[in-house]
Design a protein around this nucleic acid. Structure first.
Length: 569
DNA sequence: AAACCGGGGTTTATAGGTTGCCAAACCTA
């Protein structure tokens, strides 16, 4: 049982209680506990064994015994009982935009609506608008929300897919007779969401692997099973497709399963043109001789081209480049010198400043910026002016005792609904990293929102615009924004655009990132981390950058500290 | 339900804006 799974049960418990009886304090207690558990670094199993659960703030006797119950049995009785009273469909309804516990409860009690389909029918019959607290406009919002949910169905965020992939491949690698096992498909190509998880294994006896996966604790049910292939559904809602091939065929099969489909089709055509045959068994010459393949690079070499990393295999010019003048140098993990968007306990994060420093040193960074929320963002405990000054003074002081590492002062400042900045220029001028972003007034017109960002960019003290389009994958569409105009403006005003690395956001997305590069705007890849583990999410931001063909020179946090200071000044 | 102070009972209430109604529900990290 992973911490996040335990946290998820408490979150759902909070939702259920909110729907049932609206006990504010109980709901809040569960929700805070869920949040705390999700942010923990150590596994709950370990903390429980050492009797340290109740030492966690926000975990008292009742929640402690519930955690133990979950760890021992895998489920929570109270949670199961409530789920019998309140169908899971109601929870889905509550997740819709503009629907909270009160409206979800009204729909259930007044109309007997307990799932999304019922709700859609009720809206189409115009029964919903008649309820107290609802309206025709709200019916419209509901339909849009249902559509968004349906669109995301079957798609999983990359981070979930990759975690699952890591767990399952390391499990499979330990099975008898396994010579190789790797993740393929869009997960390996680092697409922002994936349909299902493709795993390829090389082994002589497929049955052992198929049976082992079928009975793995993460697996909920077997969808399909053949002689050397199995498709299963996991508890995490992502389907896994495992193919077992002979060890000799592993490399070509893995390569084909990685895709993308069009990339592979073109490679096959090139092979044919060269008198070769490329398929999942390998490369054959016209005379029927099999080309020896010890790596994917051998495949590309045989076709007369440079090795193409998985992130680029989308038929967006990579084949031409790899055949001709060569692929450009693309940014990679070693290029990143620091993280410029990090929150601490001063606002709404679980990290102390010293935790940030330690983790960043561990990651080999040479700098980091502390950028807590500004005063207007009350929900996130945004810092008042005096507290920012106090924090910055502390940071400067801490910085003097650090060797080969620079701690930068910063803020993530709200661009207020009227377009003004949340902090005065006098403060911004003496702050190393000024990030500006929007957290309120999402539903303003395209024109107004675009103007708000433009005003921020025009302020010479603003260095970076964070998560500009505001999308949250599967939960919230980006706001109405003239992204192209803003990218132009960023280039013109030397404002850096952030690629927010959080796998929930990935904002800018890869398309906008490409546009930014073309327009000559500079980018920064930041985690926006609120706990220590999420400082590791830099890889997801990097994947966006790589898929957009960014070079190290396009990204400011590849610079050495002195050059970075130059850019920020 | 947790945390607190005292050893069981009390306190806790993100805040401010938006929506689309004329109040309450919802939303934001």
């Amino acid at each position: 049982m992973q911490n996040i799974e335990v946290a998820w049960i408490f979150n759902e418990l909070a939702d259920l209680i909110e729907l049932k009886e609206d006990d504010f304090f109980k709901t809040r207690a569960y929700r805070q506990a869920a949040r705390t558990l999700a942010h923990l670094e150590q596994p709950l199993e370990e903390l429980s064994r050492r009797g340290q659960l109740s030492k966690i703030p926000g975990i008292g006797r009742a929640i402690e015994s519930k955690i133990k119950e979950i760890l021992e049995t895998g489920t929570l009785k109270k949670h199961q009982e409530l789920l019998r009273e309140i169908p899971p469909g109601v929870l889905e309804i509550k997740q819709l935009p503009s629907i909270g516990p009160k409206r979800a409860r009204a729909l259930m009690q007044e109309l007997g609506v307990t799932n999304l389909q019922d709700l859609e029918d009720a809206v189409k019959d115009r029964r919903v608008r008649k309820l107290k607290g609802f309206s025709a406009k709200l019916e419209w919002d509901i339909l849009n929300g249902i559509e968004m949910v349906r669109n995301r169905q079957g798609r999983t965020r990359l981070s979930v897919a990759r975690e699952m992939a890591e767990e399952l491949t390391s499990f499979i690698s330990l099975l008898p007779g396994v010579k190789a096992v790797e993740t393929a498909g869009s997960t390996r190509r680092w697409k922002e969401t994936v349909g299902d998880l493709d795993i390829i294994a090389g082994a002589e006896n497929p049955e052992i692997l198929l049976a082992a996966l079928a009975s793995h604790p993460r697996v909920k049910e077997v969808i399909n099973k053949g002689d050397n292939r199995i498709e299963v559904m996991t508890w995490w809602g992502i389907a896994v497709d495992l193919s077992v091939v002979t060890p000799a065929e592993f490399i070509p099969a893995w390569h084909r399963a990685t895709g993308s489909k069009t990339h592979y089709l073109i490679l096959q055509e090139i092979a044919k043109y060269k008198g070769l045959k490329l398929n999942h068994r390998g490369i054959e010459t016209q005379e029927g001789k099999v080309v020896d393949l010890t790596s994917e690079a051998d495949i590309y070499r045989s076709l007369g081209m440079e090795y193409i990393p998985p992130e680029l295999r989308e038929n967006r010019g990579e084949i031409e480049a790899a055949t001709g003048q060569g692929l450009p140098k693309i940014i990679s993990g070693e290029d990143i010198k620091g993280d410029l968007h990090i929150h601490t306990t001063w606002s709404d994060s679980a990290m102390e400043i010293k935790d940030v420093v330690n983790k960043c040193l561990e990651k080999g960074y040479s700098y980091a910026a502390i950028t807590d929320h500004s005063r207007s963002l009350k929900v996130a405990n945004g810092l008042e002016l005096e507290r920012v000054l106090e924090q910055h003074q502390l940071i400067r002081q801490m910085n003097t005792s650090l060797k080969d590492f620079t701690l930068l002062t910063g803020v993530e400042m709200d661009i207020l609904p009227d377009g003004s900045m949340d902090f005065p220029d006098e403060l911004l001028e003496q702050t190393d990293v000024v990030i500006a972003s929007v957290h309120t007034g999402f539903r303003q017109s395209k024109q107004d929102l675009t103007k708000r960002f433009t005003r921020a960019m025009e302020n010479p003290n603003v260095d970076i615009i964070a998560h500009m389009t505001g999308r949250v994958l599967g939960r919230r569409e980006s706001y109405e924004l003239d992204v192209e105009a803003l990218i132009e403006m960023a280039a013109k005003t030397d404002t850096v655009l952030e690629i927010n690395a959080s796998p929930d956001r990935l904002d800018l997305n890869e398309e906008h990132t490409r546009m930014a590069k073309e327009a000559g705007a500079k980018l920064a890849i930041n985690t926006d981390a609120h706990d220590v583990r999420r400082l590791d999410e830099m890889v997801y931001g990097l994947s966006v950058a790589r898929r957009a063909w960014l070079a190290p020179g396009d990204v400011i946090n590849t610079l050495e500290i002195n050059d970075l200071r130059e850019v920020l000044s």
